[in-house]
Design a protein around this nucleic acid. Structure first.
Length: 895
RNA sequence: GGGCGGUUAGCUCAGCGGUAGAGCAUCGGCCUUACAAGCCGAGGGUCGCAGGUUCGAAACCUGCACCGCCCACCA
């Protein structure tokens, strides 16, 4: 089979993904036996557009899912999308706006129909983008949070929680977005540091005996003031407590109250209390039974309660209030003031605390269970420190406002009887009012917070509340992979709802992905314009390279900094693998047939060495993925493939491959065996290129019941225990060290890369003294390798006592000297300088060791094995130093 | 105001108690029939700072600094 000279990712990407899907490889079958690995995708918003966060997330999912599938797990990766209440409604509203219409022009029913229509047309975009990344989800199980089945789960749990008193409806102060015209949860409010002002306003005493000055950042809300508060111990104001002041502009009389929450040191120490528009004041108001006055409507405009300011926007009202106060000489002063203001996380509009009837989840009892489950280790975070974040939030949660005044979402299953005002919460619309028998029931207008349905995702997608085979088999899921930004929004709430609904945690492990930043370490944001489009880089570097890069940079607990350099390096790696494949294939018989295995004992040292190295790489990569150390797994696979397999084995295989007969057959088998193994190992990271190559290699693979495709082939496990003993492993290390030494000398001596050199080694230390004879035997075995790799015309083994001939330049290793004949006219000063440098290094190390060994404390306290190790090392260093000096002396005479 | 994470070669990161490592970038030499998206070689670091624990610290402890993030009702 002919492979082109460089790898073009396009064709295999399109081809293989469709094949895998067509063949049903990613389908989960609950009836299949075996251990289970299940995971749910964090459902992207239907309005979503693939960004690097998704790309990273999906890549890591796919790495572990593919590995587990290949390992024989009954694997389910559940895909789907989130209806994303506000986000989606906004998109369609914008579309309508272009036609000059608002949702109110359409009415609720028509508008919702329009959103569904939008979803039919564009809702699949994000999932198609995930597919392009190679996501091996069970696409036949795609779910949407507004699907009938999932909606049923939402209704079911809502009714249950309501009946248990864990969901309640109440008039309360909530965050309100005047633009979205809906309530928001605490989490949907971002706090933005903003420069503002502190206005000092005089409130005259009712008895005209003076005034009290309050400081505020929001003068417009004074129209809703129902008290002025001071600290009970504040001597300045003690006499005022219980008296009345006149609210300027409106002339209302309000009391001066004492409350310990007031900070006497801030502002004037007197604070206006607006229970209808401030969370603190709301609490204070409750403590003192103050009236709550709302001065704005749902659009953030001043309402009737604002008297003369009625109809103004909040902003206009503020200006006018300041102006009027100034005119009445009630504005004492204005100071610049920096403070955090809450804005809608969707549209950045300043949120308004508003009084309204809303639905809440009583979170505390649910949170207790969720905390306990993590404390007990039923769910573990990776990296573990994220558990602190989780606990900190869970331990201080407020009730969760779940009602939204939107049209797109799960409509709350509560029904009102307009005749007797009875409210009924039920899964099905009741035929008649339970209290008065009236038949005209009206369903609650509000819908649920999107996160309410997301919280059920791990089990609602599996059919809950029905006891489906899928639920029994795949729940609790094995792992959740997500970003830290939704630990509160999603992870915490899944924990609470999962435990509440099923009695079990929704997932065993939670892996928190790094945050993707640009090459300057900046967060990617639209406003910075530094957002990298994954589809573009996939186009440029190939999907496999993008995946590999993301995995390789996924360090636990650190941000991920993506750069073109890294991507280019991964593309180079893909190309390296491709070319290694070309080499292997061009050295196999044209008529493919399985190559029978060769007995380990019949293999040459290098062959056993590479099989052994493959084993080690497999073990380490597998262990790293098991620990979610994707970066280490990717790096290990990379270094095995490039530096061990390509740099060494492929080179060493060339010689036996040229021959006919047994040695060639052995080399062919080892090549195929290793390449097969490394393709399997690499497949989870780079599925496309590996499948493409594996198909070409497959006919040569000798395996019973060999899978038709790599995507479902067995993941490799170490298979060559005992192929290489410790002594042989050490021998190969020596071979590599000698090769490197000769190559280094070649470079120093200015040899052309193609030129062959005369070289020799002379053992020293243990290699010479203790096993001279066996060393010679060992040397004979790896000498051809070193000679090949270092392009040595001859590589001799010199007797220990023989002086190195003049004209040779020597490098000193710990256990031997390596010498290479210098070319005619070589300037030996360069060699002397190199030796001197090396001598300095060795001398410094030796001095270090000596100092340590001469330290009485070290001798008295250090572990005996350590002392022995140090003594040996010092001994070697001393010998090495001696050899270096001698070489330097010999070289002194050269030239 | 609390809390979390980071600080190791120019860059991105390993190492987490016993000789400072890798990849990329840089420099020198090579188109050596798998691969120039390649091969061979070289240079480059008082491991953020200051203390402490230890025979021994990049690693453990305590402060501090800087960068980043999260949470927080000082109006």
């Amino acid at each position: 089979m002919e492979l082109s000279k460089t790898f073009d990712p396009r064709v295999p990407e399109e081809h293989w993904f469709q094949r895998w899907i067509d063949l049903g490889y990613f389908k989960a079958d609950a009836a299949r036996p075996g251990p289970v690995f299940s995971i749910v995708i964090p459902p992207p918003n239907v309005t979503g557009q693939l960004h690097l966060g998704h790309a990273l997330n999906v890549t890591l999912h796919d790495v572990i899912v593919r590995m587990r599938r290949m390992q024989g797990y009954n694997t389910l990766w559940q895909p789907g999308t989130d209806h994303a209440g506000i986000a989606t409604q906004n998109v369609v509203e914008r579309e309508l706006a272009k036609e000059g219409k608002s949702r109110h022009d359409l009415g609720r029913e028509a508008f919702v129909a329009r959103v569904w229509q939008w979803r039919e047309t564009y809702g699949g975009r994000i999932l198609n983008q995930l597919r392009r990344l190679g996501a091996s989800c069970d696409w036949s199980r795609e779910r949407f949070t507004l699907d009938p089945g999932l909606s049923r789960a939402v209704t079911e749990i809502f009714v249950r929680l309501y009946r248990e008193g864990l969901i309640y409806r109440a008039m309360s102060l909530i965050n309100w977005c005047p633009r979205c015209e809906t309530a928001l949860s605490d989490l949907e409010v971002d706090h933005k540091e903003t420069p503002g002002h502190l206005w000092y306003i005089r409130y005259p005493l009712a008895d005209k005996s003076g005034a009290v000055t309050v400081a505020t950042t929001r003068p417009e809300t004074m129209l809703g003031d129902t008290a002025v508060a001071v600290h009970p111990d504040d001597a300045r104001y003690r006499s005022l407590i219980g008296r009345k002041v006149i609210l300027p502009l409106l002339g209302r009389e309000i009391p001066v109250i004492a409350d310990a929450a007031v900070d006497p040191a801030f502002g004037t120490g007197a604070v206006k209390i607006t229970p209808g528009h401030d969370f603190n004041d709301f609490q204070t108001g409750r403590r003192h039974n103050l009236a709550q006055i709302s001065v704005m409507d749902t659009h953030g405009r001043m309402n009737d309660a604002a008297g003369p300011y009625r109809g103004m926007t909040r902003e206009d009202c503020r200006r006018k209030v300041i102006e009027d106060l100034g005119a009445q000489n009630l504005l004492e002063k204005t100071e610049p003031h920096q403070h955090a203001i809450g804005v809608c996380s969707r549209c950045e509009t300043v949120v308004e605390p508003m009084l309204s009837y809303q639905w809440f989840v009583r979170v505390t009892p649910l949170a207790e269970q969720a905390i306990a489950a993590v404390r007990a280790g039923h769910t573990t975070f990776h990296p573990k420190f994220w558990e602190n974040t989780y606990f900190a939030w869970m331990e201080n949660v407020y009730d969760w406002c779940i009602s939204r005044q939107l049209w797109w979402g799960h409509r709350i299953p509560a029904y009102w009887c307009d005749r007797c005002n009875e409210m009924i919460v039920a899964a099905e619309r009741p035929a008649a009012c339970a209290k008065c028998g009236g038949g005209d029931l009206r369903q609650e207008d509000d819908v649920l917070d999107t996160w309410f349905s997301s919280a059920l995702w791990p089990f609602s997608t599996l059919g809950w509340p029905d006891e489906t085979p899928e639920l029994a088999r795949y729940y609790p899921t094995s792992l959740l992979i997500t970003g830290f930004d939704i630990i509160f929004f999603w992870v915490a709430r899944m924990m609470m709802m999962g435990l509440k609904c099923t009695g079990q945690v929704p997932f065993r492990d939670v892996y928190i992905t790094p945050l993707v930043r640009d090459q300057y370490g900046k967060k990617m944001t639209k406003s910075r314009g530094n957002v990298v489009d994954p589809l573009q880089i996939m186009e440029r570097y190939g999907t496999d390279a993008v995946r590999f890069t993301l995995a390789q940079l996924s360090v636990q607990g650190r941000d991920l900094i993506l750069s073109d350099d890294r991507l280019a390096a991964s593309r180079a790696f893909a190309n390296k693998v491709w070319n290694a494949a070309r080499f292997v294939l061009m050295n196999l018989e044209d008529a493919p047939q399985p190559i029978a295995p060769v007995e380990i004992d019949a293999l040459a040292l290098a062959e056993r060495w590479i099989l052994h190295s493959l084993d080690q790489a497999i073990a380490e990569v597998t262990a790293a993925i098991d620990r979610y150390e994707f970066n280490l797994a990717a790096l290990r696979a990379y270094s095995f493939i490039w530096h061990e397999f390509c740099d060494w084995y492929v080179e060493l295989a060339k010689e036996p491959l040229r021959q006919a007969g047994e040695r060639q057959a052995a080399a062919r088998w080892v090549l195929v065996r290793c390449f097969d193994g490394l393709l399997r190992l690499l497949h989870p990271f780079m599925p496309f290129i590996t499948e493409e190559i594996w198909q070409a290699l497959r006919p040569y693979i000798d395996e019973r019941d060999l899978a038709p495709h790599l995507a479902i082939a067995k993941f490799p496990t170490p298979a060559f225990a005992g192929a290489l003993d410790a002594q042989e492993a050490a021998a190969m290390d020596r071979c590599i060290a000698v090769t490197e030494a000769i190559n280094s000398l070649r470079s120093l001596l200015g040899y052309h890369p193609g030129q062959r050199v005369e070289a020799r080694i002379k053992p020293a230390g243990a290699a010479a003294e203790e096993n001279g004879a066996s060393f010679r035997a060992e040397f004979e075995r790896w000498k051809p390798y070193a000679a090949t790799m270092a392009k040595a015309a001859s590589l001799g083994l010199a007797p220990r006592n023989e002086n190195t001939p003049g004209g040779m330049v020597t490098a000193v290793l710990g256990w031997c000297e390596v010498s290479v004949m210098a070319p005619g006219g070589f300037d030996f000063e360069r060699a002397r300088a190199a030796l001197r440098k090396k001598l300095d290094e060795v001398a410094a190390h030796h001095a270090q060791h000596e100092a340590r060994l001469n330290n009485p404390d070290f001798v008295a306290k250090a572990a005996p094995e350590m002392q022995e190790q140090m003594r040996q090392r010092a001994h070697e260093l001393a010998a090495q130093q001696e050899l270096l000096r001698k070489q330097l002396m010999l070289l002194a005479e050269a030239n």
